[in-house]
Design a protein around this nucleic acid. Structure first.
Length: 461
DNA sequence: GCATGATCATGC
DNA sequence: GCATGATCATGC
């Protein structure tokens, strides 16, 4: 067979790869593959390697096109109503070898050896289509921008340190900013040995957070970068300081000031009563224009939460998350549940406190939920799922008020379940009719973080 | 003064 | 119309 491309010539590989644009696997591959049935995750990539690039899929520690140091990765896209592309999920890279990583440094790491340069193939996912018919939309080589690489290096060091400390089983995507350690493989819980601890740890792989992949996509698709404001202005800054330190240094000059004083000092006009006031204030302090998103926060999928504390340090309110759909909740497994996914994000808490009736800016804090507390939150989730599954939501009805069996604040120190709806009749359908009320739909509820937990484990720590 | 159920207000 | 952050109302 005639050679399709020269695998030791990067330009040749890239040119051949780019022929994939706006094509499907069915169109570009030998018809013999149509005789096979392919399903499940990962097969798109395997078919691409085997039948388009015509080499055997491997799990080598070297890059796929190792002569030119190029790793091939394919990943699904979704399309927004405005036609822009977004990543359907995180981009999963090579598996972390816990036993080996402790002896590596970044430049000799398996992560860097394999992924320093990536040939990305993004296809448009469609749940109703055979994967052979997904349309390939974006194809390009990806090399890390200098400033991103500094953050990724620090992320890698964070992951390595946790493994070195014998805490591989406690790894969380919330530990890091752009580069995550996501679980990979096996519903039965693929586990591996870890150094410095006899406990096995779930298998994990390096991955780019979905938010980071979105920026890769925007960059490849040449979408206007205007909607984002950069926090990091110079590469010398990010070489000296972590993203965390850079953010803290911007906020610190305002600690102890009242909201009015901050607004005055910033020289901006903000409507104190507007719903977006705190988000705007945060952006103004960070030096990002109000109509733009903070690029680094989007890439790291940082969830910003503003908390107003009472004089006794207790937050005025608990913290809510998006409502859950009862029918979806009961189909979920904890490991891949929406709630766990949220809790494994990196958070930025912005604390204000009422002092003599005035709102004073106290501090900001980066935080992600410790492993032991994730286990506590799991108990709340498990109980909630069981209650919904059994049709046992309502405990009793008194004066038309429905009291529920959902886990309350006494049940758990971390989290509880409460309504989060516009009205009691703002509902989601139930999978099982409620035994007490015979209702087949119920007021929207969500998981909340307890205010006392915010105080003790986030604000005071 | 808090826990819990209920709901408001804004913005997209 | 709904998601989200914010807040209220009642009872103990």
């Amino acid at each position: 067979m005639k050679p399709l491309y020269n695998k030791s010539d990067k330009q040749s590989v890239l040119a051949f790869a780019k022929k994939l644009k706006n094509k499907t696997l069915r169109e570009v591959c030998d018809p013999i593959i149509l005789k096979h049935t392919y399903s499940g995750k990962g097969n798109f990539g395997q078919i691409l390697e085997k039948y388009y690039f015509q080499y055997e899929p491997n799990s080598e520690s070297e890059a796929d096109f190792n002569e030119i140091g190029l790793e091939l990765k394919s990943s699904p896209l979704k399309q927004l109503k405005n036609k822009e592309f977004r990543s359907k999920e995180r981009l999963v890279l090579n598996i972390i070898n816990y036993l080996e990583v402790v002896n590596q440094d970044f430049t000799t790491s398996s992560f860097w050896k394999k992924n320093a340069s990536i040939l990305l193939v993004f296809y448009l996912y469609n749940a109703n289509q055979n994967l052979l018919d997904y349309i390939i939309k974006l194809v390009d080589e990806w090399n890390f921008p200098e400033n991103d690489l500094e953050i990724i290096k620090r992320d890698w060091e964070t992951i390595k340190k946790k493994i070195t400390d014998g805490k591989a089983h406690e790894l969380s995507e919330g530990d890091t900013f752009y580069l995550g350690a996501c679980t990979k493989g096996g519903k039965g819980g693929n586990e591996r040995l870890q150094p410095n601890n006899t406990l096995p740890a779930k298998q994990r792989a390096y991955s780019f957070k979905q938010g980071y992949v979105n920026h890769i996509i925007a960059s490849i698709a040449n979408e206007a970068a205007g909607a984002y404001g950069k926090l990091i202005k110079s590469s010398t800054e990010v070489k000296k300081k972590s993203l965390e330190e850079i953010v803290l240094s911007k906020f610190k000059p305002y600690y102890g000031l009242s909201v009015d004083q901050i607004v005055k000092r910033l020289g901006i006009k903000l409507n104190v009563n507007a719903k977006s006031f705190y988000a705007s204030l945060t952006k103004a302090i960070l030096g990002v224009e109000l109509d733009k998103e903070v690029e680094e926060f989007e890439k790291a999928e940082i969830i910003v939460k503003t908390v107003r504390l009472k004089e006794n340090n207790l937050p005025k309110e608990d913290i809510s998350f998006p409502t859950f759909k009862y029918k979806e909740l009961i189909e979920e497994a904890w490991e891949t549940s929406e709630f766990k996914e949220i809790l494994e994000h990196k958070f930025l808490f912005v604390f204000f406190q009422f002092v003599n009736g005035q709102l004073i800016f106290k501090k900001v804090k980066f935080w992600n939920m410790p492993y032991k507390d994730i286990l506590q939150a799991k108990k709340v989730w498990v109980k909630t799922k069981a209650i919904v599954s059994s049709g046992g939501i309502v405990k009793k009805v008194v004066n038309k008020i429905r009291y529920t069996n959902f886990p309350n604040k006494r049940f758990n120190t971390v989290s509880h379940v409460r309504p989060h709806a516009q009205k009691a009749n703002d509902t989601y359908p139930l999978p099982t009719k409620d035994k007490v009320t015979q209702l087949n739909e119920y007021t929207k509820h969500c998981f909340w973080l307890n205010s006392s937990y915010i105080r003790d484990e986030i604000y005071l720590k």
